[in-house]
């Protein structure tokens, strides 16, 4: 079975060693997904796998036949950006731009996780319904390192989109 990436099917005829990240970047030409550390330590390679965010560097492409992947290119385009992409631009939630696609994919999944009722380590009541405070956004976005230090603006961008969705 092929893998579906941003709605298009791709054959998985690759060296089994190929990470999903390298398959996206080299095999599919989808270089919006970035390689920052290749070891699950920075989050630049974050994509949505069947709707959930993962580090695409730490999984093998061959393990994902039949799965559906959404990358930054599948979220929105320059002509039709996703609300998060537009909010990141408005709030200057990036500088060099290298961690940015991962941040935005992560934020997309994060909002879905909150909607699904997932709590985080900083939630007062781990059994209760989460409230998306700034502290919650910071904890939930801590898997995406930004060396330019755009965190304040990233939080503002996400908070704005979350409010609009609420």
């Amino acid at each position: 079975m092929p893998i579906t990436i941003n709605g298009a099917e791709h054959d998985l005829d690759v060296d089994p060693r190929t990470s999903l990240l390298d398959f996206l970047r080299t095999g599919c030409g989808l270089t919006g997904t970035k390689k920052g550390c290749d070891h699950g330590q920075c989050g630049a390679c974050t994509v949505l796998l069947n709707g959930q965010r993962i580090n695409s560097c730490l999984t093998l492409a061959v393990m994902h036949d039949g799965d559906s992947v959404t990358t930054i290119e599948g979220l929105g385009t320059p002509d039709a950006p996703h609300p998060l992409q537009a909010a990141f631009v408005r709030h200057d939630g990036y500088q060099c731009g290298y961690c940015t696609p991962g941040q935005i994919c992560s934020a997309k999944a994060m909002l879905d996780e909150v909607a699904a009722g997932w709590t985080s380590f900083v939630s007062d009541d781990v059994a209760g319904a989460p409230k998306l405070s700034e502290e919650e956004i910071r904890e939930r976005m801590s898997g995406n390192v930004c060396r330019c230090g755009a965190y304040s603006n990233i939080v503002a961008a996400i908070a704005e989109v979350a409010e609009a969705q609420a």
């Binding site: 997904t33 930054i72 320059p78 731009g97 940015t100």
Partner: peptide, 14 residues
């Protein structure tokens, strides 16, 4: 806003 913002946030900036 930065003129390069759209390319960076949509992943098309090489």
């Amino acid at each position: 806003d930065r003129p390069d913002g759209s390319a960076k946030t949509t992943g098309v900036a090489p």
